[in-house]
């Protein structure tokens, strides 16, 4: 009996540590974003409101950051999907040496620090005159997004048995009809997950955008960085901006868990 109680207490402590670790930064972020009046000697703000959000929208710089971030992300998503859907199909259906090598290279890219890629790209972009070019940021963002998206889509295609394609062909389906009537219904969850990966990667991307885009192009993460680090310390507009990066991620996570029954971590269907 005594032992059981002790065990339960330990369980509660461990779980609490994990919860606090995850939720504390989030809590502080929301506090700062919504605090209108907050005295330094008080633990919690006195008055909550949307002051900092309207403040953020008044500034041209941050308005442009919104525009860049929220247009780049869907473009990066579409471009990454356009590349990764056919590539994932090829990698999943032809398990030859070349496709395994490709897969390993792409996976290796996941472990590569982004700064390393950035240092490689910077002279290249400079020479081509692409530094500060909005469109040139799309391929730069894709570099980091592709491994995640490709993995998710390849996994989805690998779960479709080859027999199904052949059965559909014998039943009268052309190659195009096989894609529409067999592969799409069975892989769309994995493809959607892959798209979300690309979207959120682009929204979070900082290092490459800073190296190749700034100062002409500043996305939300750069704007946030400038508020807290670069020039002067104003955590409150930074927190308000951060909410806009956080929001899509939370929405998507809920959507996935609730309605699609897809775990983002697994990425398959």
């Amino acid at each position: 009996m005594e032992r059981e109680k002790k065990q339960k207490l330990w369980d509660a402590i461990i779980i609490s540590i994990v919860m606090i670790y995850i939720l504390l930064p989030m809590f502080v972020l929301f506090e700062y974003a919504f605090a209108e009046v907050w005295y330094a000697y008080q633990l919690f703000p006195v008055k909550l409101g949307l002051k900092w959000f309207s403040w953020v929208f008044k500034h041209h710089d941050t308005r442009m950051a919104f525009f860049y971030s929220y247009t780049l992300a869907p473009l990066v998503m579409l471009a990454t999907l356009a590349l990764c859907i056919p590539a994932g199909y090829v990698l999943a259906t032809r398990r030859n040496r070349l496709s395994i090598l490709t897969e390993n290279l792409v996976n290796m890219n996941m472990a590569l620090p982004v700064i390393v890629i950035g240092i490689g790209l910077l002279p290249l972009y400079t020479r081509l005159g692409l530094v500060g070019n909005y469109w040139a940021l799309i391929p730069a963002h894709m570099i980091g997004a592709i491994p995640y998206t490709l993995r998710s889509i390849t996994a989805a295609f690998m779960q479709v048995p080859k027999d199904l394609e052949e059965a559909a062909r014998v039943l009268g389906a052309t190659r195009l009809q096989v894609i529409r009537k067999v592969y799409m219904p069975l892989t769309w969850r994995g493809i959607l997950a892959g798209g979300i990966f690309a979207f959120s990667w682009s929204l979070n991307e900082f290092i490459l955008t800073l190296l190749l885009g700034a100062p002409a192009i500043k996305t939300l993460p750069i704007s946030i960085y400038e508020y807290v680090g670069g020039y002067y310390l104003t955590p409150q507009p930074a927190a308000a901006l951060s909410i806009f990066i956080l929001l899509p991620s939370i929405l998507v996570a809920i959507l996935f868990e609730r309605y699609l029954q897809v775990s983002l971590g697994l990425g398959g269907s």
Binding site: E166, T174, L186
Partner: peptide, 19 residues
């Protein structure tokens, strides 16, 4: 091509469409 031969085939795995 197979889709134009109008043959019926039963596979070892039966290959039914799961969706």
């Amino acid at each position: 091509p197979p889709e134009k031969r109008n043959l019926g085939m039963v596979f070892q795995s039966w290959a039914l469409f799961p969706h």
